[in-house]
């Protein structure tokens, strides 16, 4: 369909402008992250970081590394737990058709719709009793609730596409159900595992509500709280805030560059069944 007529290039021009407008706030974040403190309140604001400074990023290195580390660990934990819980469930719902399976899928759909603030309050009450507030496992468990229902639905959708002959062949070869799952289903489901992992990591990395309610007072605080504390400070250093924001956006950027295909799959899989 792509034709390189002048008219098509004219559309590319319009597309560039529209994309530029949409992404302008992102550019502004990067621009401010390089702006010197004394230029911050300049009028009119500097559109380019001429006389740029790396002070903001120095502040990130000095103050935000523990937060970033926590976020990374929590993200990894969320990914592992989410895949471990959701992949077998997706396999069962897609291929084994257990009685009551559709009822479970229905519950998972409903679970996705529960507002985070409600989950957070319930978790807070439970964690307080159990004494697991401000712990890594506590935050990881709470963050998985952002991803598990979505992950099961994705796995179910993708694994329905695995040919039944492939699974029957494994059974004929004498593989048990567990063996079939482990050595046939999982390897051919690589794409869905990647999709689920990317989203699980990104959502736990971006989580603010569980972090602020369940980990706000402890030693293990993720990067979202790092930024939040910066904003709360009275002498707001906007270059440091925006530099942290830029660093916190890296996972999203990496995801988009390396795995754009999977991103669109994930976005549409939940909404549109073709």
């Amino acid at each position: 369909m792509t034709t390189s007529t002048p008219r098509a290039w004219w559309k590319t021009g319009v597309g560039l402008v529209l994309t530029g407008l949409m992404l302008f706030p992102v550019y502004w974040m990067i621009n401010v992250s390089f702006t010197r403190d004394q230029d911050m309140r300049a009028s009119p604001p500097h559109l380019f970081p001429t006389n740029g400074t790396l002070d903001g990023y120095r502040a990130v290195l000095d103050q935000q590394l523990p937060y970033l580390g926590t976020s990374f660990l929590v993200g990894l934990g969320t990914v592992v737990l989410t895949v471990a819980l959701a992949a077998p469930a997706g396999y069962a719902l897609a291929k084994l058709r257990p009685p009551g399976g559709p009822a479970l899928s229905f519950l998972l759909l409903i679970a996705q719709m529960i507002p985070g603030i409600i989950m957070a309050m319930g978790f807070y009450a439970i964690y307080l009793t159990l004494g697991v507030l401000n712990t890594l496992p506590g935050l990881i468990l709470a963050d998985t609730t952002l991803a598990v229902p979505f992950a099961v639905l994705i796995f179910t959708a993708f694994m329905s596409g695995i040919p039944d002959e492939l699974l029957q062949a494994a059974v004929v070869d004498g593989a048990g159900r567990l063996r079939t799952f482990w050595s046939v289903v999982l390897p051919v489901s690589r794409n869905s595992i990647v999709t689920v992992s990317l989203f699980a990591f990104l959502w736990s990395w971006s989580d603010f509500i569980f972090a602020s309610t369940l980990a706000g007072g402890g030693d293990y605080q993720p990067i979202t709280l790092g930024i939040y504390h910066y904003i709360g400070n009275n002498n707001q250093q906007w270059n440091a805030i925006m530099a942290t924001a830029v660093v916190a956006s890296i996972p999203a950027a990496v995801l988009l560059v390396l795995a754009q295909r999977y991103v669109s799959m994930g976005v549409t899989a939940g909404a549109v069944k073709d």
């Binding site: 529209l18 994309t19 949409m22 992404l23 706030p25 992102v26 974040m29 990104l202 990395w205 971006s206 603010f208 979202t224 930024i227 939040y228 924001a245 916190a248 956006s249 999203a252 950027a253 995801l255 988009l256 754009q260 991103v263 669109s264 976005v267």
Partner: peptide, 13 residues
């Protein structure tokens, strides 16, 4: 693909 960026950024950002 680029327009997806705002949706992928952490909300606090």
């Amino acid at each position: 693909a680029l327009i997806l960026v705002p949706w992928l950024l952490p909300l606090i950002v």
